[in-house]
C-alpha cells in the first residue's frame, strides 16, 4: 500500500482507534505506574487484575440479565471487587517482600499473574466466555467532519478521560493524594514525618486495581479471555517505561501515544505492531531511560 492511496478518512479512523486502544492501555498503566512510583514494585500481576475485572463484570452482567443496566452495574461492582482483592493481596502477599531484593518482588508478581489467570480459568473455564450482546445504545457511530466515530470507541475515550481527570484530582486535591505524592517522591522521608505510608500503599494498590478493572469491563466487548491479562501487561509495561516509571502524566501521554503507534503499525507497518512498540520501548530505554516525563535520576 503506497501512502498516496491512504485517504484522510482512513488516517483519522486509525487515529481514533489508536486513541481508544490507548485509553485502555492508560487504564492499565496508571495503576502500574502509581504502584511502581510508591512501592518500587513492577507488578506483573496487574494485567491479571484487569482481566479479572472483565470476568467479574461479565458475571455481574449475566446475573442482571445483560443490557444497559447490567453493563452499568458491572462498571461499578467489578472495579470495587477487584480493588478489594488488590488491597487484600497487597496486605498479605506483597507486603512481606518490600524489604527484600527487587528480584523477588518481580518473581512473586509473576507467579501471582499465573495464579490469577489459572484461577479464572478454573472458575469460568479456559475458553473465551460467551458475551451478552452489546447494549444497542453503543451501536452506530457519530459522524464528525466526514469521519465515522463508533459510539463504543467514543465511550471508551470519554470514560478514560473521566478516570484520568478523577485520579488526577484525587492525587492533587486531597490530603490522601498529597501523602501518596510525597511517598512517591521519597517513601522513607514521608514515613519519618509520621504519615501513614503503609496505608497509602494499600490504598494506591486498591486504586490501581480499581482503574484496571474498569478497563477490563470496557474490554468485555473487545475480546475478553483468560490470556488477556498476560497479553495486555506487556504493552502496559511499555507505556509505563516510555512515559517514565512512576510518572502519572507520563503514563497518560505514553499510553495514548503507544495506542496510536500500535494502530498505525497494525495498518501500515510491514512488521507486526507488537514488534514496533517493543522497538520503541528499547529505543526509549537506551536513549532516554527516564522516559518522556520521568525524573532524570534513574538507576542506569
Amino acid at each position: 500500500m503506497t501512502p498516496l492511496s491512504v485517504g484522510l478518512g482512513d488516517l483519522a479512523t486509525t487515529f481514533v482507534n489508536g486513541v481508544s486502544y490507548g485509553m485502555i492501555l492508560v487504564l492499565v498503566a496508571l495503576g502500574l505506574s502509581l504502584v511502581f512510583g510508591l512501592m518500587g514494585v513492577l507488578n506483573f500481576a496487574h494485567g491479571a487484575l484487569f482481566m479479572l475485572g472483565g470476568y467479574i463484570g461479565l458475571a455481574v452482567m449475566k446475573l442482571t440479565g445483560g443490557g444497559m443496566t447490567g453493563f452499568a452495574l458491572a462498571l461499578v461492582v467489578a472495579p470495587l471487587a477487584v480493588a478489594a482483592i488488590g488491597a487484600g493481596l497487597e496486605r498479605t502477599v506483597y507486603k512481606p517482600l518490600y524489604e527484600t531484593e527487587p528480584i523477588y518482588q518481580l518473581l512473586l508478581t509473576f507467579g501471582l499473574a499465573v495464579v490469577i489467570e489459572e484461577a479464572v480459568k478454573y472458575i469460568w473455564g479456559a475458553a473465551p466466555p460467551g458475551v451478552p450482546p452489546r447494549p444497542a445504545v453503543f451501536d452506530g457511530a457519530v459522524v464528525f467532519m466526514g469521519i465515522s466515530l463508533p459510539y463504543y470507541r467514543v465511550f471508551t475515550i470519554l470514560l478514560g478521560v473521566a478516570v484520568v481527570a478523577g485520579t488526577a484530582l484525587f492525587l492533587s486535591r486531597t490530603r490522601f493524594g498529597l501523602i501518596v505524592r510525597a511517598g512517591v517522591y521519597n517513601t522513607d522521608r514521608t514515613a519519618t514525618l509520621g504519615l501513614n505510608v503503609e496505608r497509602a500503599f494499600t490504598a494506591v494498590f486498591g486504586l490501581g486495581a480499581f482503574i484496571a478493572a474498569l478497563g477490563g469491563v470496557v474490554y468485555i466487548y473487545r475480546a475478553i479471555e483468560p490470556s488477556v491479562g498476560a497479553s495486555i501487561i506487556l504493552p502496559a509495561f511499555i507505556v509505563v517505561i516510555v512515559g517514565g516509571l512512576g510518572s502519572f502524566w507520563g503514563s497518560v501521554i505514553a499510553g495514548l501515544l503507544i495506542g496510536v503507534i500500535w494502530q498505525f503499525a497494525a495498518v501500515y507497518a510491514p512488521v507486526p505492531a507488537g514488534t514496533v512498540i517493543f522497538l520503541v520501548m528499547i529505543a526509549v530505554l537506551l536513549l532516554r531511560p527516564q522516559g518522556l516525563l520521568g525524573e532524570a535520576e534513574v538507576e542506569v
Binding site: P102, I241, V271, P272, L285, L286, E299, V300
Partner: peptide
Amino acid sequence: RRSGVYFAMITLGVAQVFYTLFQS
C-alpha cells in the same frame, strides 16, 4: 547499558521482538 528493572525490560523487549517477528 541498563540494570535492574530496565535490564529486565530490554531483554523482554528483545525476546518479544523476535517472537512477534517469527510469528508472522
